[in-house]
Simulated assay, not measured.
Amino acid sequence: MTLTIEKGASSHSAYDLRDPHSQIEERHTLALLVENEPGTLARVIGLFSGRGYNIDSLTVAEVDHTGHRSRITLVTRGTPAVIEQIKAQLGRIVPVHEVHDLTVEGPAVERELGLFKVAGKGDRRVEALRIAEIFRAKVVDSTLESFVFEITGSPEKIDAFAELVRPLGLLEMARTGVAALPRGV
């Protein structure tokens, strides 16, 4: 007898040990493959706003120019039951071809890009450069009174960098949102 594991099952175990009735909110990264046509993103966003769900992060880009398909990566929070409801409702939207919950399907790589404008003179300027070096942030613009740093990494790394440069004179920041792919083949 061969063991068949349903697509989307965790690669860590043949059993899904999460309690579907838990009231604890979890963070989930969802990846959607959709038709790249007017109104598709509005329909996806409308599903979230219409039901009172929140989106923590959202990235969209065309990934198949000839097939006119885009990938939407979004991060949301909810109880296991709410997450299952979100996935089922997304799957019913006509221009949505695939819905993947990267959080439960196995290990995934998540990255985000951040741009940080930090003011500083003297010791604060030197400290900002030191922190940037530790985080492997690049200086992409410099004036006598400020720097713009570019940093890529996990959302947690971007958050940590922001917290360290905030007291040094963080003026502005821009973040792309999470881009994610499953690991392995």
Rank of each mutant, 00 (worst) to 15 (best):
L90F: 03
V34F: 01
G46P: 02
A81L: 07
L41T: 05
L171C: 08
V63K: 13
L181Y: 10
E112I: 03
E26Y: 11
L170S: 07
R18I: 14
V118A: 00
F116L: 06
T73E: 06
E37V: 12
G39Q: 15
E37M: 15
F135T: 02
L58S: 05
A174P: 03
A108S: 11
K117Q: 05
L17N: 09
H28G: 08
R175Q: 13
G8Y: 07
R111N: 03
T103K: 06
V109S: 11
I151Y: 01
D159I: 09
I158A: 04
G153S: 08
A14N: 15
V94F: 09
S11Q: 15
G184V: 08
S13I: 07
E98Y: 02
L17A: 10
D123Q: 11
G52N: 04
V178E: 06
G52R: 04
V139N: 02
G78L: 06
R111D: 00
L41Q: 04
S70E: 10
I93K: 00
L115W: 01
A81Q: 09
E145H: 14
L168D: 02
R136V: 06
N54A: 08
A14K: 15
G120V: 01
V60D: 02
T143R: 06
S49C: 07
T79C: 02
G52V: 03
S142M: 14
P107N: 12
G169S: 08
P107F: 06
T4Q: 15
V99T: 03
A179D: 11
H65Q: 14
E145K: 09
G106L: 02
R43T: 09
D56A: 13
G39N: 12
G50T: 04
V34L: 05
K157Y: 05
H28A: 14
V82F: 02
A174I: 10
I134G: 01
A132R: 00
V75C: 11
E156P: 01
I55G: 05
V96D: 04
V185M: 14
L74Y: 09
I134T: 08
E35S: 12
